[in-house]
Computed example of a mutant assay.
Amino acid sequence: MWAIGVDLAWSPRNPTAAVALRWEEDHWEVEAWADDLGSDAEILGFLSPYREGSCIIGIDAPLIVPNEEGSRPCDREIASRFGRYHAGGYPVNRRWLRAFGGLRGEALAQALAAWGFTLNPPSVPQALIRTVIEVFPHPAAVILFGLRRMIRYKRLGRGLWIRGLRRWHRQLLTLEHFHPLLRWPEAWRSSLPDRKTRRALKAWEDRLDAAFCAYVAGYVWFYGPAGYEQIGDLQNGYVIIPRRIG
């Protein structure tokens, strides 16, 4: 069983990060990662080893966007419920996404459907499934970590950005004490990359986000419907938000 997270860049001109977790009897292990994926073909190349067998993929990007303008109902609800935590999202529509490079989430979901993946979240715990779900790290972090406010680490000045990344990294390391736990490799334990260039810091940020998306997907698989809330539907778009158990 694999759980994969994809922090999908809205334009292929920007790098996408992906992290694959492998289920090991009672916990998740980091199996593979990349933080420099460009085109859709490169993303599918990373995912291709997992096109057979049981797998759940959590993608941080809109996967179903039927509305040309305005906002999806699920995005409005998330903004209403999580805005006070600074964890609300943007209004999503097809016109807006085209301005950033296209409907990449929809295209990726359709490509995965050709591999036999569905957009249906798990209906029972720990099922043998092949599914892709839309996830949103900010509200997921508020719920799983019990945050009073989302940890800020995006679009900040260098000093605040580095402090935010360090705090976000420390928070993610606590997943080793969750159930199910995520066992981090030694390469991930340093709070920042050795080189602190803007590109290296952005790659680290994207990789952390992809790892959290993978964990959320794995958490949803492990607990099934008891472990998540589906905000929205398959017709108008939905986002899966985990429920904290234990």
Rank of each mutant, 00 (worst) to 15 (best):
S11R: 05
V220R: 07
V216G: 02
A211M: 08
N93E: 00
R198Q: 04
H138P: 07
K154Y: 03
S48Y: 00
P91R: 02
R81K: 14
L234K: 06
D60G: 04
C74H: 06
G146K: 08
A20R: 07
L112Y: 00
L21W: 01
Y223M: 07
H177L: 09
R149M: 03
W115Y: 07
N120G: 06
F212C: 06
I143E: 15
L144K: 02
W33V: 15
R94T: 01
E24T: 11
E205V: 13
G157I: 15
A41S: 11
G218I: 13
I151E: 03
N67A: 13
L165I: 11
D233V: 15
I151N: 05
D36T: 10
D7E: 07
E31P: 03
L144I: 10
A32G: 06
W221E: 05
R243Y: 02
I143L: 04
A109F: 00
R72V: 15
W2N: 10
V216S: 03
T16A: 02
P122K: 06
L103N: 02
A187K: 12
P62Y: 01
E68I: 11
G157S: 09
G83Q: 07
W10T: 04
F100Y: 15
I43G: 01
E68W: 04
H179W: 12
T131S: 10
T118Q: 06
A34R: 12
R243L: 08
R130S: 11
I129L: 12
W96D: 01
A200L: 01
I57P: 00
D36N: 09
L147W: 08
S39I: 08
E29V: 13
G83R: 09
E42M: 05
A217Y: 00
F117A: 10
A214R: 02
M150R: 07
Y223C: 02
P15N: 14
H138Q: 14
S71A: 09
L128M: 09
E31I: 14
N14K: 15
A111F: 03
P185E: 11
A34S: 07
H86Q: 13
G102I: 15
R244K: 13
A17D: 01
R76V: 15
A113T: 10
L21C: 07
G146I: 15
A111G: 10
D206T: 04
A111N: 06
T131I: 15
V239Y: 08
A20V: 11
S190L: 10
C55I: 13
D233F: 12
F222Q: 00
Q235K: 07
I56S: 00
W168K: 12
A34V: 04
W168H: 04
S39M: 03
R148P: 00
L234M: 11
L172V: 07
